[in-house]
């Protein structure tokens, strides 16, 4: 029963979030602020993780091909498709759920316990829309760009791994990267990330917006935000994959 209670409360919360912003210029300023905070500030972590994951996927695939009749260009193809289909969207989304989700939950949670959200409401500001809508828009637009970035960096990581270790001939790797390329995989990955971005922006905001108590509850809301966002990302990953790739 509690599950359905929270679903209903979450939907009511979203209805308030999607009310028309009260002051357009402040709303646009807030979107740019959130793009910097949630998107641009995540570039470094996405770069570091993607380059190493790309390298590891490449090396593991190369070292596990023991049968001589398997063409070596499959290493490049495997790296490309792993990055395009799963890593750059789902795994990056899980990492962002930890980084950005915790950031959103702690920001809103702290505002809640320090009565700053009540202060906004008292001024006549629609606090749900003012605080959360810019985060949703910033996330839904910037996270797919991070996915694209992750794809290129991951493949570059694989390229560097092959270049420095000679695990397979570099030409085979490059050939595999180009081999049987399906552009829809990029669209699929971007659609997934846009949906994950919505989850990462709204679930932590919901968790934090209704907390009662003090610093301990902010910590608990952070943990719940990351855990629930991650579970929802994995759940929707299955659903979207079935819908888009079946």
């Amino acid at each position: 029963m509690e599950f359905f209670y929270h679903i209903g409360k979450y939907l009511v919360f979203l209805r308030k979030v999607f009310k028309r912003p009260q002051k357009r210029n402040i709303f646009i300023q807030n979107i740019f602020f959130e793009i910097e905070k949630l998107g641009i500030n995540s570039v470094v972590i996405v770069f570091i993780i993607s380059i190493f994951m790309g390298a590891v996927i490449t090396l593991q695939t190369a070292y596990n091909i023991e049968v001589s009749f398997v063409p070596l260009y499959l290493v490049g193809l495997g790296t490309r498709d792993s990055m395009f289909l799963e890593f750059s969207s789902t795994i990056v989304a899980l990492i962002l759920a930890g980084k950005v989700g915790a950031n959103i939950a702690s920001e809103i949670g702290t505002m809640k316990i320090r009565e700053q959200i009540e202060a906004l409401d008292m001024m006549g500001v629609n606090s749900e829309s003012y605080l959360v809508l810019p985060k949703i828009i910033a996330s839904v637009f910037t996270f797919p760009l991070l996915t694209l970035f992750s794809m290129f960096v991951g493949i570059f990581g694989g390229y560097l791994a092959v270049y420095f270790t000679n695990a397979i001939p570099l030409d085979d790797f490059v050939y595999g990267i180009h081999y049987y390329f399906i552009p829809f995989y990029i669209t699929y990955s971007l659609i997934k990330m846009a949906i994950f971005a919505f989850i990462i922006a709204t679930v932590p905001a919901y968790q934090a917006y209704f907390i009662r108590g003090g610093a301990l509850e902010v910590g608990k809301a952070n943990t719940k935000a990351v855990v629930y966002s991650s579970i929802l990302i994995l759940f929707f990953n299955v659903i979207i994959t079935q819908i888009l790739l079946s």
Binding site: R114, Q116, M122
Partner: peptide, 13 residues
Amino acid sequence: RQEIGMVFQGGAL
């Protein structure tokens, strides 16, 4: 509410 000013216990700045 736009005609109301409120000062919260902790200031709520």
